[in-house]
Amino acid sequence: MEDMTQHITRDDIIDFIYQEARMLDEGRYDEWLSLWLESGIYWMPLDYKQSDPINATSLLYEDHFMLRLRVERLNGARTFSQKPKSRCHHVLQRPFVDVFEPLEGRFQTNTSVHYVETRLDEQILLALTVTHDLKIDDGKLKIAGKKVELLNSDAAFGNIQLLP
């Protein structure tokens, strides 16, 4: 990818969000991991409108080690809950670019998503609001943080095995 620092547009930001979802849907997890800054955190709150991710339980609050662990586990020979594998599907509404500061290399988007995950005869549908914090690192857009809010975060769920 060429150096984006000089002439980045809002469309570049939006394309990045769509591409990230496509990587997840196509199971291109190594590529997906390379989108992340090492310091990036994936947060999925448990409480509706939760403000503190650390001093109360979240569904996910994953550092790079945990994200890598998830991805490697999916392909493990003894990962019995992924025999057979789950599949997922994202439908995105066009992201809002809420912060666009190319000089600082700082961007934030807000995206409404319908997320479908399936395995065997089960299929779940989750309504999400996703906030991406993006930064430019070494000339490329990277994910500095991703917050995934479930519309029904306080509901009881069975397994959610992949990463919305």
């Binding site: 999925m44 001093n55 339980t57 979240s58 569904l59 996910l60 009881a156 069975g158």
Partner: peptide
């Protein structure tokens, strides 16, 4: 809280 989400969550 970390233990709870790493071990006991549906995720």
């Amino acid at each position: 809280s970390m233990y709870n989400r790493m071990i006991n969550a549906p995720t």
